[in-house]
Each structure stands twice: as C-alpha cells, then as structure tokens.
C-alpha cells in the first residue's frame, strides 16, 4: 500500500511491521540455538513445519477473503507466531499435532478475528493451549537435555520420530524422555518430598533445571536485545517478572522446603520467553503505560498461582491468554489524562 506524502513531517519512519517482526525473530535465534543444542534436531524440524504451515494457512485465508496474500505473508507476523509456537512445543511432537496447532493459531486465533491487529488472543499461545488441552500426553513428553547424558537426537532420528512415530532410541521413548524441572518438582512435592531432597536429583542445575536454565538465559539475552532496540517496552517484562519474583519470594520466605525459590521460577519453564516475547505482543497486550504495569503484574501472579495450585506444570500460556481477555478492560480504566485536561472536567 502506498501513502502519498501530502504534508509535513517529511521524514520517513524507520519502523514498520516487517522490521519489528524481523527483530523479534532475530532475538529469538539464541534461544532456538540453545534448544537445538540441548534437545537436538527435532526443534529445527518443528520450526520448519510450523513456518510452512503458517505461510500456507495465511495464503489460504487471504485467497478466501479475496485479498493479496503477499503483504500479509511478508510482514512476518505469521512466521513469528510459527516460531514462538515451535519453541514452545516438545521437540519430537508428532507432525500432525504441530500442523493442527499452527493452523489453529493462524486461521482461528488470528485470521478469523480479522488478521494482524484485530486478534484478541496471542495466536501462538492459543495454538499451544489447544494442543496442551487436546494432547496432554504428547505435549508433556519432553526429551532429556543432552547435558544429562541424554541421547543427542540426530536429524534423521528426529525426522523419523516426528513423521513416523519411531522413537529415536532402540529402547523406546522412556529411554530418551524425562520430566521437565517444573514437572519433576510438582510430582516430588506431591509425594511430600522436601525441596532440599528434590534438588539432589542430577536434573538440578544452579538456577533451574540443567540445560533449561541456559535456554532461559538465552531468551533473556534476546529479550534484552529487544529492550535495547526499543522493540518492546520495559513495563510488561519488568512488572511480570517482578510480581512473579515477589509472590514466589514471599512463599519461599515462609517455607523454603515446600516452595521453590523465586530464582527457580524465573529460570524454569517459559517464564523468560513469556516475559519478553509473548506477553509483550503489541496487539494483545495492554497499551496504556499504567495498564501495561497491571497487565504484566497480573500475569506474574497468575503464573505463580497456576504453577503452584493449577492442573498443569507450566502456566505462561494460560496466564497470557487470561490476561489478553482482561486487556481491553484494563485499558479502559487506565486511560492517561490528556495533557491540559482536568481530572474532574467530565465528572470523573
């Protein structure tokens, strides 16, 4: 689309959708590389699968709506959704589940609401939630990170596992899969084990689970890059991580034997990925400055609540989706005062 320049200012902006999306994707690369390092080639196959499905789905919907699919595909928003979904999925998920999740994210969660800018829910997390609710067994089958002496999955093995369901190890799935740190902690706590006991397990690293803590750290690096570039604001990540640390800290101080430390919460699961890449989605997040602080803080609280007392080990997807639903209301009540206007001018 061309906008004829009619009046000042005549400086052209440096930002557009494509550029923003490309920078977010670039920031995601270290995290993807870490995932690939610890979990093998399944991550890359998933990435290709979600990207391909997303592009095909966007093309399909745009054709159905009788519009030109090129600008929608090249703005990279669908591809970013695909990448975010791919890093959230277990590395050897059967291919058809990956395709269903991506198609749901693009067609139902994004395009049926009107496309980029109109979707009330984060498409990647909607697709993830659909898969987690529909296929709980496959969606919680994570591989053991290779630092634990796990089996490094080659490209060929990943291909076979994803497309034919053949386990990458002759002794079957149990030989290569392991509980995620959050999952492990949850199971052991339900058996009345103390945290100091649980942490003797070789699964545990310094901050979170071995391997997992490094993946989270690389997401953090990507997030800091986005902050530096001004692609995302500081309010949502800071308030989300701050409230999660605060709530987890209070419980940890009450009894560190049954409540994991705040640092563990920070470096486990999708906390850092969620704080920098998912909760900050400009379309579905709150947009007012105060609203963003409330939005992020409530996501942090929800993450803690669902992780501790909910039915699933990780909670970032559900927390973000719930707060997406609340974002319009938050925006409504946190409209900033117009400069020069009095607070009580219209009786409020």
């Amino acid at each position: 689309m061309e906008f004829p320049v009619a009046s000042s200012p005549h400086l052209s902006g440096q930002n557009n959708v494509q550029r923003v999306m490309a920078q977010v994707m670039l920031a995601l690369v270290p995290g993807i590389a870490a995932l690939w390092w610890y979990f093998g080639w399944g991550v890359i196959v998933n990435l290709g699968l979600t990207s391909l499905t997303a592009v095909v789905c966007e093309w399909l919907v745009m054709r159905l709506r009788g519009r030109d699919p090129r600008p929608v595909i090249t703005d990279l928003s669908g591809l970013l959704t695909a990448w975010l979904l791919a890093v959230a999925l277990p590395p050897l998920l059967p291919w058809w589940q990956t395709v269903i999740g991506t198609a749901f994210a693009i067609i139902i969660a994004k395009q049926l609401f009107g496309g980029l800018g109109y979707n009330p829910f984060n498409p990647a997390m909607a697709g993830y939630a659909l898969l987690l609710v529909s296929f709980p067994a496959d969606m919680t089958r994570w591989l053991e990170p290779s630092v634990l002496g796990g089996h490094a999955v080659s490209l060929n093995e990943a291909w076979q596992a994803i497309f034919s369901g053949i386990p990458p190890h002759p002794q079957g799935w149990d030989a290569v899969t392991g509980a995620t740190p959050l999952d492990h902690l949850r199971t052991e706590l339900s058996r009345d084990h103390m945290i100091s006991e649980i942490q003797r397990d070789p699964l545990w690293g310094n901050l979170g689970g071995k391997g997992w803590e490094w993946i989270s750290s690389w997401y953090l690096l990507g997030g800091l890059f986005l902050l530096w570039r001004g692609v995302i604001g500081w309010r949502i990540p800071v308030s989300m991580l701050g409230s999660l640390l605060a709530v987890a800290g209070i419980f940890w101080l009450i009894d560190p034997e049954i409540h994991p430390s705040p640092v563990f919460h920070l470096f486990s699961g999708a906390t850092l990925l969620g704080a920098f890449f998912i909760a900050t989605d400009p379309v579905t997040a709150s947009t007012t400055p105060r609203g963003q602080l409330i939005y992020g803080a409530l996501i942090g609280v929800l993450v803690y609540v669902i992780r501790t007392w909910g039915g699933y080990p990780d909670a970032v997807a559900f927390s973000v989706l719930l707060m997406n639903m609340a974002a319009p209301t938050i925006d409504h009540y946190t409209q900033p005062r117009v400069f020069g206007a009095r607070e009580d001018a219209d009786g409020r």
């Binding site: 269903i100 659909l130 609710v133 529909s134 296929f135 709980p136």
Partner: peptide, 8 residues
C-alpha cells in the same frame, strides 16, 4: 487420537 478440545 481425538482432538480432545472438540469435546470440551
């Protein structure tokens, strides 16, 4: 393997 979400 059904899409459990449809039943929910």
């Amino acid at each position: 393997q059904g899409l459990l979400l449809a039943i929910l």
